[in-house]
């Protein structure tokens, strides 16, 4: 028995526009969670490294908590709890965006913390020596270097994030995977759809991870 005799891939073409909508949400979720996560993550990293003890402790707790429970549980938590707090129901898509931003912030903060620590202390002194304030030293001297040093790792984490967005399946948000499942049901050919989305995920992730490798080899030469 052969794959091609039994499987009917002609259902892919007509469902492409529908899948495209799903992919668009997946991409939107990835991009928002990435930029929001890196922004909040950087603040968390600065908080962890700050000399204000309660702030450092709170940030440490938040990061460790997020990192020790499954993302799936976090998705379910936010979906359940946010409406209880706000008192009104919230769509799965909005909930997913909030959840992923908050969750990824914890992971990005660990990367940014390592990045900040990779910048020699002399750089901070040099910034202060020419009269810069804490925030000026951070935003003009330390963070740009930290960001550049960590760029490959930030991108690798983004690839993982891109894959993880498929978990919004659990709350029914319409991402690429959910769209494929719906299209599969409509045409009665779910298996072909699963294979097709697997291929899409693979192509995107493989291309991105090769980009990261390329970046790494280039920065390796410069430094």
């Amino acid at each position: 028995m052969s794959f091609f005799t039994q499987f009917d891939f002609s259902v892919i073409a007509p469902s492409l526009p529908f899948l495209w909508e799903g992919l668009k949400f997946t991409a939107k979720l990835t991009l928002i969670a990435m930029s929001g996560g890196i922004f909040l993550g950087t603040l968390l990293a600065l908080a962890r490294l700050s000399s204000i003890t309660p702030l450092a402790m709170a940030a440490t707790w938040y990061v460790n908590l997020m990192r020790s429970i499954p993302l799936l549980m976090v998705i379910l938590w936010f979906f359940l709890v946010i409406p209880i707090f706000t008192g009104k129901p919230m769509g799965a898509e909005t909930s997913a965006i909030i959840t992923f931003t908050a969750f990824e912030a914890a992971y990005f903060s660990e990367i940014m913390r390592a990045g900040i620590q990779s910048v020699p202390r002399g750089q901070v002194f040099a910034g202060q020596a020419i009269g810069m304030t804490y925030w000026q030293t951070m935003s003009y001297v330390v963070l740009p270097q930290a960001f550049r040093n960590m760029l490959p790792i930030l991108l690798t984490q983004t690839i993982i994030l891109f894959q993880d967005t498929s978990l919004v399946y659990a709350i029914g948000a319409k991402d690429l995977l959910k769209a494929a499942e719906i299209a599969g049901k409509n045409y009665g050919r779910p298996l072909e759809m699963y294979v097709f989305v697997a291929l899409v995920y693979f192509v995107v992730c493989f291309a991105l991870s090769n980009l990261v490798k390329h970046l790494q080899s280039r920065t390796a030469i410069v430094r």
């Binding site: 894959q163 993880d164 399946y169 298996l191 699963y194 294979v195 991870s209």
Partner: peptide, 26 residues
């Protein structure tokens, strides 16, 4: 490594559960 690293876990799980059995001998 590339194969198992570049497809989301959930998608892999659905493939193993629904698609792989179709490939096995009858």
């Amino acid at each position: 490594v590339e194969l198992f690293r570049n497809v989301p876990l959930l998608v892999q799980l659905l493939l193993w559960f629904f698609v792989v059995p179709e490939f096995l001998p009858r």
